[in-house]
Design a protein around this nucleic acid. Structure first.
Lengths: 203, 203
DNA sequence: GAAAAAGGATAGGACGTCCTATGTATCTCG
DNA sequence: CGAGATACATAGGACGTCCTATCCTTTTTC
């Protein structure tokens, strides 16, 4: 016989997976709380009880995924030796994620768009990604090439390339993606690049 | 005395600028047609008459900006000589756009997220960017380094880095962005890179 | 076994949005 | 100058959403 706590945990899982599907299908704003509850064979009251509202569902969903994804990536990274291999691991886990399937990138985009105009969400997002990056670096072990500052930029390139790949799949090959990532890492770990030859100016 | 056509043109402009402001402030889904009309000192009837609905407003807005942006970029590119300089021009026009101010990137993200689950929007987006890229390449003139295939990937990196810069401004310097872009171009225009050393596999 | 607490169902009100149908003032053109 | 076309306003119905208040059922605690 299932205890109350077990049932509650299952309700939470059902609500989260239902929300993940619906958010990806119709977008966050296009998904009603009632729709989430209905797909989970629950009612809206359960959603409010568990997450307090739609924003709570979104945050919980992404936090869960980022955590799991960080673990997976960290594990794979420990077996990679070269920089390119490590970056390929990152790219593979974004373009063909084991965790969360195709959906989580769509959700990420929604959240970033949301964060671009909401200071609270922005702060949450920054903390979350910095933490994830830190965890990845630690799990990867002795990687002198992955200085902490590259983290955000690497993530930015990963998201941007995946975004493009979703719209125009043929345009972003794996080789291309890895080459771009190598470029990013090289850009920060080799500040000796001559600004005059790059044409870039400090902001 | 303003003619009818002139008044119509002004109404169109007012509606578009109002929509741009509101979309950036509250997001596309969070903006009602009535709110757009109200800020433009018009009524919802005018919006429907001009654009047929909210999607029409969004498309018209982005098409206008992409067109103008393409012209600006093309003009600046003609004075750039090295590859890095050209890529720096691209980055500058994304991170500090003259056209559309800060808003258009936010809108782009919304549209991409929308396109990720809407085939029609996806097709429109692909056409628009391919056209814009083609125009840029032509305006830039004899650039053998900018092969047509890099276009989408370059745009993806631009968007991704700008996305990250908006959330965490200090994390993406201009030098870093240009270095990443150089990496992308190098990745496609030099297919002689050994896949085994990069760790990437063909999909 | 009784009391307390928790998980969840149900119903409904307040609100906002989309979009259409119709009205009206202004312009265009024969 | 008068008829038609144009540009936009106005009003309102249908719909969906959020969230609260209240109730019932099951589990835990003493």
């Amino acid at each position: 016989m299932a205890t109350q706590g077990e049932r509650r945990a299952e309700t939470r899982r059902r609500l989260l997976t239902a929300a993940a599907e619906l958010f990806a299908e119709r977008g966050v704003d296009g998904t009603s709380i009632d729709a989430i509850a209905e797909r989970a064979d629950r009612t809206s009251g359960a959603v409010y009880d568990h997450f307090g509202g739609k924003d709570g569902v979104l945050i919980a969903l992404l936090d869960t995924w980022v955590e799991e994804l960080g673990l997976v990536i960290g594990a794979e990274l420990s077996t990679a030796t070269t920089l390119a291999e490590r970056l390929a691991v990152l790219w593979r886990n974004v373009s063909e994620p084991v965790v969360g399937g195709d959906r989580w990138i769509s959700l990420e985009l929604e959240l970033w768009a949301h964060a671009a105009r909401n200071p609270d969400a922005r702060e949450h997002l920054v903390r979350r990604y910095r933490g994830a990056w830190k965890g990845i670096v630690e799990l990867a072990g002795r990687s002198g090439d992955a200085s902490p500052e590259v983290g955000p930029a690497v993530i930015g390139v990963l998201l941007g390339l995946e975004l493009m790949r979703r719209v125009d799949p043929a345009s972003v090959t794996d080789e291309l993606a890895v080459a771009a990532l190598v470029g990013v890492v090289a850009g920060t770990s080799r500040p000796d690049l001559d600004p005059q030859t790059t044409g870039a100016t400090a902001r």
